[in-house]
Design a protein around this nucleic acid. Structure first.
Lengths: 204, 204
DNA sequence: TCCCGCCTAGTCAAATTTGATTAGCAGGCA
DNA sequence: TGCCTGCTAATCAAATTTGACTAGGCGGGA
C-alpha cells in the first residue's frame, strides 16, 4: 500500500463520524498538512486511490445528501477498511526499510499515531527504535569495512549521511516515546479522543 | 527531471570513456550502489529513461559491436546531455525543497559529486548550507507559533522530526565541505580524475 | 445587472513506474 | 549428448501518478 493510499484511507476514517468524506475534502485536509510537499498528493492520485480502495472493499460509497454544487461522491470506511488501516499503520511504524524514502513512508503513519491506543503506540515505537538501532549498526559496519572495498568513495558519503539521519531518528523517537509515556496527546483509548483529531475543516 | 533520470544520465556518462553503456550495464551499476533501495530503479524505469533521454537528444544511440548474446543497445552522452547533467546535478545540490523526499532527491546528486571541480562543489554545498539553515529556521518558527494554531498536534510532531533531520543535514554538510577543502576525493579538476570513478564493472 | 475572479469538485490523456516474463547462451553434471 | 540452472538483456501489459483542464456556483464591484 502506497503512502497516498494510507493517507486517503486515514482521512476518510477521520471523517467517519460525520458520515464520510468526498475527494475534495480529503484533498483539502491533506493540503492543510502540506502533504503535497512530503507525500505526493496531486488531485488525480487522491481520486484514483479513492476509487481503488472502494473497488477493493476498503471504502464504501455512501449516498450523498446531494446538496448544491457539482457532483460529489462520499465514502466511508468498511470493516475491512478499518482492519487494513490499523494493520498498515502499525506496519509502517515498525518498518524502517528504505533509508531515504523511509522517512517519508513513516511520515504518512506518524500523522495517524493518535489513532492507536497509547500502550500500543509506545510498544511499536520502541520496536522501531530497535530496528533503527540495527540499521545504524549496519550502516556503521559498512562504513568501517567499506573504505577499502569496491564502490567509488562517494557512495560511502551516502552512508555517512544515512548514519546521521539514523541518529536523528533514534533520538527523536526516544523523545517521542518519553513524551507519550508522560501522557502527551490524546490517544485512541483516552477519554475525549476525537477519532483522529483533525482540525474541523469540513465544509460540505 | 526525476532522480532516476539523473542517475541513468550519470551512469551513462561514466561509461563515456569506454564507448557508451547499455541498459543492463546501467542497471548493474545502480544495483551495486543499492540504488534500488534509496531511489527506484526497477528495470523498466531504466530502459524507459534511456529511451526518453535519447528521444530528447541528451543521449545518442551508438552502434553496437554486436557481439554474441541478446540484442544490446548502447548509448553515449551528447553535448546537450553533458550540459543537462551538469545543470541538473548542480541544481539538486542547491535545492532543499521537499523535506522528506528531499533527502532522496539529494542522494542522486551526491553520487556524482566528484564530477564537479572542487571549488564549485564547495561553493554549491555552502549555498546548500544556507538553504538548509533557512529551512531550519522556518520549521523552528512554525513549531514555536504552531503549538496553539490549527492542525492536530501530530502534524507538529512531523515538524519536530524534520527539524532533527535538518540539523543532521547541516552538520553532515559542514563536515563534507571541510573534508573537500582538505583535499578529500579526486574531483573533476584534480589530476587522475577517472571521469566519474566507478568501480570497474563493465562486462561487455 | 453583468462580468470577473475565486472556490468547489472532479475528470482525463499522457507520462511514468512496476515487476513479471521472454529469450539467448554458457557451464556443470549425469 | 541432453538437461537444468543461472546470467545477460530487455520488453510489455497493467497500475499509478502527473497536473492541466472542465464546469458550476457565489460574492462583489462597476
Amino acid at each position: 500500500m502506497s503512502a497516498t493510499r494510507l493517507l486517503v484511507l486515514g482521512v476518510v476514517r477521520m471523517h467517519g463520524a460525520t458520515g464520510g468524506a468526498h475527494g475534495y475534502q480529503v484533498r483539502r485536509e491533506l493540503l492543510s498538512w502540506s502533504a503535497d510537499k512530503w507525500a505526493n498528493v496531486q488531485p488525480g492520485s487522491i481520486y484514483h486511490a479513492l476509487k481503488r480502495l472502494a473497488l477493493e472493499g476498503l471504502l464504501e460509497q455512501v449516498e450523498t445528501p446531494q446538496g448544491k454544487g457539482p457532483d460529489r461522491l462520499a465514502y466511508t470506511l468498511t470493516g475491512a477498511g478499518e482492519d487494513a488501516f490499523q494493520q498498515e499503520l502499525q506496519q509502517r511504524i515498525v518498518d524502517v526499510d528504505g533509508a531515504a524514502g523511509g522517512a517519508y513512508e513513516f511520515s504518512a503513519a506518524l500523522v495517524f499515531l493518535t489513532a492507536l491506543p497509547r500502550a500500543l503506540a509506545v510498544d511499536l515505537l520502541e520496536y522501531r527504535l530497535v530496528q533503527l538501532d540495527g540499521q545504524r549498526r549496519n550502516v556503521a559496519a559498512v562504513l568501517d569495512k567499506g573504505i577499502e572495498w569496491g564502490q567509488p568513495a562517494h557512495v560511502n558519503e551516502l552512508y555517512r549521511l544515512w548514519l546521521a539521519h539514523c541518529d536523528a531518528d533514534i533520538s527523536w523517537t526516544s523523545d517521542l516515546v518519553a513524551r507519550l509515556r508522560a501522557g502527551e496527546y490524546v490517544m485512541a483509548d483516552d477519554a475525549g479522543h476525537d477519532f483522529g483529531s483533525a482540525a474541523p475543516s469540513a465544509t460540505s
